[in-house]
Design a protein around this nucleic acid. Structure first.
Lengths: 205, 205
DNA sequence: TTTCGTATTAACAATATTGTTAATCATTAC
DNA sequence: GTAATGATTAACAATATTGTTAATACGAAA
């Protein structure tokens, strides 16, 4: 009756999202999802028929998110390259702050269920086919101008993604060690700067 | 009858290891493990009684591996710090070449089944309680001597582990894009150098 | 060779998990 | 008011998965 009156269909999807992201396809149970959503599990099957169906809804949404962030992060602009790389790292990092479980979830499902790779590849392959060559050209130009040290676009991207993603992947585990737990937002802010620093020094002459 | 005559017990454990590492606790099925091992699934229960039991055998072995590599990688020596860091990165990387699925496996089980964290923490906490402070002291000394730029030991370790681990985590996915697939061992060798380069430049004045 | 313990199998049992159905309820349209 | 439609429930059904058992085979020790 309140303003925030979501349909059961949506509530189920949200609960499914939480459970699938945390436990993966096989770890998640439809009964548990229904319970979490506060509905009978017949309801879940009424709206989504199968677990597979429900999972795909979540999965496709998440694959799209990844595709979006690649485009958004590496979009061209007229800023000098080094500044833009810095902004890219930061915006990618900020995206991860808002989507902390996303990389682990996708990587896992793609590895443990290779059947699902097609849908991922279709969404991504154009993007990398465009982004990487474009970035490579820019990098090569800057190298010729003597502004940066030579690097493969693919390596640069992998450097950035490795540094940015891995913190979030291990964060839940790190925090269970008291000796390592401190203020969360300080921790992330510090890591973001550390990552920028690392990449900048890699590129600068 | 040959020399390589492993007991069924061992064969089952090996098959379980493969399946658990790839699919995780919930994705792995005891029937499938038995099939892979070429034994009836009653055999599996005869030797290990429960799936939980069998899993724990694998899990504990893997946790020990991690604990070992931390000690081994960051062990003291009389080499100058920068050289030692370089060796550390390389030996950690080489370890991952031999244990490519290990990080993903452990991270996943620890996140999706927090019940299992205790056993991990117990094995690891001493190690980090010793390694990090020791490394920090050395780093601080070098900073005072003007040899390197200031850094937290924890950040340095996280930098190294992020760069080294992430390549292997995404490697199976990367290789499904034709545009990105090339010679595997060249790829790894190149990444190892890139990672060393990044960290060295982060530390050097 | 008998005896004893381990290994092995097939068949069964128990449980967990997913999916269906038929009956009921609620809401809106007529 | 009632017919129609979608939402909801409980109860059931089917299947997948894990685990057990009882019977048997095998090999070594006595």
């Amino acid at each position: 009756m309140e303003i925030k009156d979501k349909s059961k269909e949506e509530i189920i999807l949200k609960a499914a999202e939480v459970e699938f992201m945390l436990k993966g396809f096989h770890g998640a149970k439809t009964t548990s999802i229904a319970k979490e959503a506060g509905v009978t599990h017949a309801m879940l099957h009424y709206y989504y028929r199968t677990k597979e169906n429900l999972f795909n809804k979540v999965f496709e949404t998440k694959v799209s998110l990844i595709s979006d962030i690649i485009v958004r992060s590496f979009a061209n602009s007229h800023m000098p390259l080094l500044e833009r790389v810095k902004l890219t790292i930061e915006s990618h990092f900020n995206f991860l702050v808002e989507n902390q479980e996303l990389p682990r979830f996708l990587i896992n499902e793609l590895i443990s269920q290779p059947e699902r790779r097609k849908i991922f590849e279709n969404k991504i392959e154009d993007v990398i086919g465009i982004v990487i060559p474009a970035l490579q050209k820019e990098l090569d130009d800057e190298v010729l101008k003597g502004n940066i040290r030579a690097i493969k676009a693919f390596d640069l991207i992998l450097d950035i993604v490795s540094l940015n993603v891995f913190v979030f992947v291990v964060f839940p585990i790190i925090t269970s060690f008291d000796s390592l737990s401190g203020n969360t937002s300080d921790f992330f802010e510090n890591r973001k700067q550390e990552n920028v620093e690392l990449i900048m020094r890699r590129l600068k002459k």
